[in-house]
Design a protein around this nucleic acid. Structure first.
Lengths: 158, 158
DNA sequence: TTACGGGTTGGAGTGCACTCCAGGTCAAGC
DNA sequence: GCTTGACCTGGAGTGCACTCCAACCCGTAA
């Protein structure tokens, strides 16, 4: 498999593949007679996994570290496992945050829909509506909830 | 509230707050006699919401657009709603992907744990193990699964 | 044999999202 | 009056993750 084929199969550009090789994310492949890179299919699985780590928010430093450990073979198993466990925790936390946000978005969409329909907004949502309305600069200190916390929405599940 | 207080309350740096103002993410605040920014508490809700959009993967362009729409008041309600609906879809897709990854990570951690214990790895996981082992370059075409697809793991639930 | 399509290299450029800095102003406390 | 600390401005610098480019090489089909 040459770089063009791998690019097509992996969804990365040839430039990106060469870049990943340069920084050490993927191993240097063999070359053919003409000096061109020849990849073996197993690289695809690795690229896919890297992509997954990236897509779930693992930065390049950690991916590099993981790639480096991988080249050390089984001696690095425990550390790789620890890295994955750490990452798992982060992913779980992200899911929680995203799920919470789903609720916030649903609430807001709902509110906007009702406002579009010309409906008077429930006082419980006033602060939210005002915030999202391009609030004219009001600098009094008398709005109806205190400065920190007390958001009246946001935690109704997805 | 001056910029330092807002920084403390919002968790952003004063530099970041000024930067957000410069690019138009947050409205220009009033100034006191000495030319210093004076914020009203409502800005915190907006910053919080922006942060949520950012944390859930909305890029700066879209956040800017949303901020711009916000300044237009109720005339932009429908478009803002559409933006949020679009974003909601992306967030839902992200959750799905993250959840899938949680499963992949669990499988891998499991596998590593067993390998650390010196256990012989189930043939069904061989490809995975090989991939994650710093596979020596094999360029035959006879490994046990065909080039595309057929991953024996990764889709067992969260 | 020549054109072409795909490969090679090193290095420069891009876009995002800040972050830092120099050099200055201002208000309050000692 | 002077120092201190928070603030001001414009602009430069940073780190990530590519992305593009010029100039070259190689193998194959027409």
């Amino acid at each position: 498999m040459r770089i063009g084929d791998l690019a097509e199969k992996s969804g990365l550009s040839t430039d990106t593949l060469r870049y990943y090789e340069k920084i050490g994310l993927i191993p240097r492949p063999l070359r053919d007679g003409g000096g061109r890179r020849v990849y073996d299919r197993t690289i695809l699985r690795w690229i896919e996994f890297l992509d997954r780590l990236k897509a779930t928010g693992m930065g390049i430093r950690d991916r590099l570290r993981y790639a480096e450990l991988r080249t050390l073979g089984s001696a690095s198993l425990a550390e790789r496992r620890r890295m994955l466990e750490d990452h798992r925790r982060k992913v779980a936390a992200d899911i929680a945050r995203l799920t919470e946000t789903l609720g916030v978005l649903d609430d807001k969409v709902d509110l906007y829909r009702r406002m579009e329909a010309g409906e008077t907004v429930d006082p419980a949502f006033e602060s939210c509506a005002r915030t999202e309305h391009g609030a004219p600069p009001i600098q009094d200190s008398s709005s109806h909830d205190s400065s920190s916390g007390a958001r009246p929405r946001a935690d109704s599940g997805p």
